[in-house]
Design a binder for these strands. Structure first.
Length: 889
RNA sequence: GGGCGUUUAGCUCAGCUGGUAGAGCGCUACCCUUACAAGGUAGAUGUCGGGGGUUCGAGCCCCUCAACGCCCACCA
């Protein structure tokens, strides 16, 4: 801690107040609002809307980091930038949360309320608890324009949903059909595949005898569910099965109900499994349903909504399927029709929420015909109108869209967009975007709307359009639809490529004739440090808020960015976040250092020709870093961008440039001092700008200390770009050699345990004239950085000092003469080790030189590299050997 | 069963169209040197999963085996 009276700054950066302060200033200053900039282009990212029931998890944190970094990057580059936030009503999961809560509080189910009453309860819940995640996004630093905040059930998205539905309905692209769904007899609703849990259950394999009409032969059918035989409408065998194929076309007779059904041949039937003979129940089995479609079989529903048998079950009517299974099998046994019964372990779907076995059941559902839309969606990616990063995800996208199933969009829920289809008491049916009171056909006033709601993804699929106002012309104008559509990039996880990306593509191409976004960046799934999924049951979840509290948002964001590239998992280890927290602290302390000297210089660099070689070097390195970062952000390589800036700040700026500046700043040369401070400040301000997209808070804070009074906040400063006039190749080259020599001296010191405080004499020998000059000019720096008392630099013709320890590089010999006693044996050992290592290296080069084919085939630059390397290493080995001989004598 | 992917230092991961392996963390030794001990300096560590092939040259391309992970389908 400094004791400076005017400015007292802690040696450790404490993020909490800084983060809250700057977010507020940005938001109040309307910095998140789109503004035209020098790029004269627009850039828009729409946040994948989290569920209202959600809390921020590590995946959301990665969403925010990757999206916000790009938004900030583009904003600084002068794009008109929109980061558009939203929330998803998430049909089933939200309704369930509220149902559960109501049950706990009032011991009532939703059926104890009217639909209106219950939906009102969900809205109330949403208003009270639904916005938590938005504050969490703010805490992550998301620079969203919150005036754009859209909820999937808002008026405009509702209009979009209705418009799309009605248009498609009128084009007969949306239709109603019988379909087999996962029916939860407890909830009395269809549930989605994702809500079905498959559990291994101990059941039985029943072998049942079926008679064949007009034949003495019988068929032995194997099933785990004999009670469904009342719904059988065929018996299937494999057409290649020699045992049975002659029976195809005959009629089988179902036991108990004695119905005649055809024997059909279907490839689906497995010759090995069971008896190779399958009863087909299209109303209550997913496969059988498909078989039924292929063969045009009738569908019989034998179940009531509560899962009991209906009148098709004859005397078994009213029994649950579980009870009926036993009773029916007993009855078959009595009749001598049960040939075998084996216990059998098999998976059975259970309702995730209710816990009861799911009954596959056929019911009327709404569908979208996607065959045409999916073709266009495939084409758009093949054409490159929309590009996947990383490219491999195309396959996942194609595999779904190239053989699409029609999309079942109806859900038997109350929370969601109600299907805009109306019926009158005369059985007329029509779709409309408005509330209908009268049948357009028969003028009946007895009209009701379809009670089902639409699949959540139906509204999500229209999200890129509806958030920008479509289809309301006034809203589109206000929200600048034409500026921000198509969006620039969609960033999301691979788990929803089918559900969401594909749907948005289809629905956008259908309604706008354009892709919804130009790029899709698929980011990794965040896992724990052992690569396991984060889950409640494992207790291995990383709560972003713990990380923010412990390390600060910037460190957390930097960690996520450094792990985000083209990989598909990020194994997040909190210790890594700690490492980046230290980096953030390093930046803080670099500021503390230069802040002591700010009075001496400006943030402008005056005449470039006056710069010294270290200054040209740091500008050159800065330039390279800016180049890498710009290129990396453009292709979503956050890992490369963060690695580049990390290395520049830590290794180049802090470890060398600041260290090299100390003797100047402590010296008396006012002109040099002022120039150096200017460069320090100039480069540091560029560092803040480079870092800002990833670590917005600390950079804005430090910028506020460094900015000129006429400069605006960092969030809207120019992003540093590559500038070829700032590249100084020879300065970079010489500096690297200087670093090598300093490191070498330090290494020598350490090898004989010279105390850090003690000074040594150093003699350097090189035949490169520019290096002789360079090293001499750096006399003071050698003193400072390697505790050198006196430095001699000369050519290799000169005599080497006698009693010394030495290191040899490819360009320079470094000698440290020692007054005291040297442990000769130890030094000889060290040299011999070095010689062995160098020879090993050399041999590789030599082998390639001697290889005629290599010299003939390798490209010029590679060959030159080898030739040069061979020469340098040969020289190094000679030096080492000569000196070893001297040493031994 | 179909598809995708992973296997590189103790750990987590980079490694661009093939040119001879890197980072962070951790570890070892020595240092509270006036920006920073959340620090400094120096250092150690790899048959790039196994085997085969193509090539002057393979972590990278091809074949094959193995382990692990994910997605889709299915389990009468």
């Amino acid at each position: 801690m400094t004791t400076n009276a005017t400015e007292e700054i802690s040696t450790t950066y404490s993020p909490t107040e800084v983060e809250a302060k700057w977010y507020k200033k940005w938001e109040e200053g309307k910095y998140f609002k789109p503004k035209k900039g020098k790029a004269n282009k627009s850039y828009c990212i729409i946040v994948p809307p989290p569920n209202v029931t959600g809390r921020l998890h590590a995946g959301h944190a990665l969403d925010v980091t990757t999206q916000d970094s790009l938004i900030r990057f583009k904003r600084m580059k002068g794009y008109e930038t929109l980061f558009l936030p939203g929330l998803d009503h998430a049909g089933i999961s939200t309704q369930s949360v509220v149902e559960k809560m109501v049950f706990e509080q009032e011991k009532k189910t939703r059926r104890d309320f009217s639909r209106e009453e219950f939906v009102k309860k969900i809205w109330a819940w949403k208003e009270e608890y639904g916005n938590v995640i938005l504050d969490q996004q703010r805490a992550m630093g998301a620079s969203c324009d919150w005036d754009y905040l859209t909820f999937t059930l808002d008026t405009i998205p509702n209009k979009a949903v209705k418009k799309f539905f009605v248009d498609m309905y009128n084009q007969k692209m949306i239709y109603q059909s019988d379909y087999i769904v996962n029916w939860d007899p407890m909830l009395q609703s269809a549930v989605s595949e994702a809500e079905v849990e498959h559990k291994e259950v101990n059941g039985n394999f029943f072998h049942i005898k079926y008679a064949i009409k007009g034949s003495d032969e019988t068929l032995e059918v194997a099933t785990t569910r004999p009670e469904t035989l009342f719904g059988d409408t065929a018996v299937a065998v494999n057409p290649n099965d020699d045992r049975y194929k002659h029976l195809i076309g005959k009629m089988a007779i179902i036991p108990l109900c004695n119905r005649e059904v055809p024997i059909i041949g279907d490839e689906h039937v497995d010759l090995e499994k069971g008896t190779g003979c399958l009863k087909v129940t299209p109303g209550h089995d997913f496969n059988d349903f498909e078989i039924g479609r292929r063969h045009n079989l009738p569908i019989i529903n034998i179940l009531n909504k509560d899962g009991t048998l209906n009148e098709y079950g004859m005397e078994f009517k009213g029994l649950s399927t579980k009870v009926a299974r036993n009773v029916v099998s007993k009855k078959l046994d009595e009749l001598g029709l049960l040939l075998d019964k084996k216990s059998h372990l098999h998976p059975v779907g259970h309702g995730e929420r209710s816990g009861v076995p799911i009954e596959p059941m056929v019911s009327k559902q709404w569908f979208v015909n996607v065959s045409d839309m999916s073709k266009r969606a495939v084409l758009a990616v093949e054409n490159g109108d929309m590009k996947f990063y990383p490219k491999e995800w195309e396959n996942t996208y194609y595999s779904w869209l190239r053989n699409p199933k029609d999309w079942c969009i109806s859900r038997q829920l109350w929370w969601g967009h109600q299907i805009p289809v109306f019926y009158c008491d005369q059985n007329h049916q029509w779709a409309s975007e408005h509330d209908e009171k009268e049948c357009p056909t028969c003028k009946s006033k007895n009209v009701h709307q379809d009670p089902d709601v639409l699949d959540t993804w139906f509204s999500s699929g229209l999200w890129p359009m509806s958030t920008l106002g479509w289809p309301d012309p006034k809203a589109m104008e206000e929200k600048k639809f034409t500026t921000f559509f198509p969006n620039s990039v969609l960033i999301t996880g691979f788990d929803i490529i089918f559900f969401w990306v594909a749907r948005m593509m289809m629905m956008s191409l259908q309604t706008q004739n354009q892709v919804p976004f130009k790029d899709t960046y698929i980011h990794a799934i965040v896992r724990d440090k052992l690569g396991r999924k984060m889950s409640k049951s494992l207790g291995n979840g990383i709560d972003p808020f713990d990380m923010i509290a412990q390390y600060g948002t910037d460190a957390f964001r930097f960690s996520l960015a450094s792990g985000a590239g083209y990989n598909r998992t990020i194994n997040l280890d909190p210790e890594r976040i700690g490492g980046y927290r230290n980096f953030i602290n390093k930046v803080w302390n670099a500021y503390r250092f230069i802040s002591q000297h700010l009075a001496t210089g400006s943030s402008l660099i005056g005449d470039m020709s006056n710069l010294d070689h270290h200054e040209r070097w740091i500008l050159s390195e800065l330039n390279t870093t800016a180049k890498i970062m710009n290129e990396s952000f453009e292709v979503y390589r956050y890992d490369e961008a963060s690695a580049a800036v990390y290395a520049f700040v830590y290794d180049k700026y802090c470890s060398w440039f600041i260290e090299l500046s100390k003797n100047i700043l402590n010296g008396d040369d006012a002109v040099t001092k002022a120039r150096r401070v200017s460069v320090l400040k100039f480069v540091f301000k560029k560092i803040l700008a480079l870092l800002h997209p990833i670590t917005p808070f600390i950079t804005e804070e430090l910028w506020s200390h460094l900015k000129e009074t006429n400069e605006d906040l960092l969030i809207v400063q120019d992003y540093p770009e590559y500038d070829s006039t700032l590249e100084f190749k020879s300065d970079q080259d010489q500096m690297n050699k200087f670093i090598e020599v300093v490191t070498s001296i330090r290494n020598l010191r350490a090898s004989v345990n010279i105390k850090p405080k003690d000074e040594v004499n150093v003699e350097l020998f090189t035949d490169h004239q520019d290096l002789v000059a360079y090293f001499r000019a750096n006399n003071l720096n050698f003193q400072e950085l390697a505790r050198v008392k006196s430095l001699k630099v000369g050519n290799k013709e000169l005599n080497r000092p006698n009693k010394s320890i030495m290191n040899i590089t490819t360009h320079t010999e470094i000698f440290v003469p020692l007054e005291g006693v040297i442990d000769l044996a130890e030094q000889i050992l060290r040299l011999e080790k070095e010689i062995a290592k160098t020879i090993a290296d050399y041999n590789k080069y030599e082998a390639r030189m001697k290889n005629e084919n290599f010299m003939k085939n390798a490209p010029e630059n590679v060959r030159e590299e080898v030739i040069q390397g061979e020469a340098e290493l040969r020289e190094k080995i000679n030096s080492l050997k000569e000196n070893l001989i001297q040493f031994k004598s």
